[in-house]
Amino acid sequence: METITLKIKRQERPEAPYYWEDFKVSYTPGMTVTALLTQIQKKPINDRGEATQSVVYENGCCQGACGACTMLINGRPRLACSTIADHLSAPIVLEPLTKFPVIRDLVVDRSRFFNDLIRASSWISSDFNNPDAGLVIPSESIQKSYRELSSCTFCGSCLEACPQYNSRSSFVGAAVIGQIRLIHLLPMGRMEASQRLSIMMEEGGVEDCGHVGNCVKACPEGIDLRSAIARIEREVTVEAVRRLLG
């Protein structure tokens, strides 16, 4: 059986220094990065033959639907469960996402992402048991945009790729703006648009976007986040004018 080398950036605790450790793992064509990491868990022995701690990583659905396993694979943010080792140059370098604090090894703390979704009121606060529910018929084009934006798995790739998203700024990032756009596509969502747009006008809102477009390239679902951001920018402008005119 062939072997392949994984070079993994490791860190024992949030405040601990990082170090690199290499692992030689058995490999058959078609194996995903997640499958390779599973091998290390079963037999945590590094390439110098020393017993070591199992490498810790996030793992969810294993079919690219949940977005839990995002990490840097050879320098790019990717889903470990959907990345086949065959096409990667060896050694395969695995690092945790750099935009979030490391908890351990490849696991990061994504609380900021969740908190930003909450901060942006990313929900519809309709009445409970509204008899009109489901009666609104979205047009074909709205369905299409909705479908694209709703395929977001909250994997965080767009945030990793964004130069404006970092520990020095409070920018909410493309995924959150995409969710606001998604909600504003629905009549129910538009009813509370003003409140969400207020947040988008604040520091960390849509105006912090630098229009680099890395988010679009990084998105594993191929969501056109750039146009979602442009739409929210326009909504913000219209809202600002509306407020000015009272």
Partner: peptide
């Protein structure tokens, strides 16, 4: 329960006449 989900922001695929 399906209709309720639409009320909370889910959008199911539509028939040509716009029904779920």
């Amino acid at each position: 329960r399906v209709r309720e989900l639409e009320e909370w922001g889910a959008v199911f695929d539509r028939t040509l006449s716009g029904l779920i």
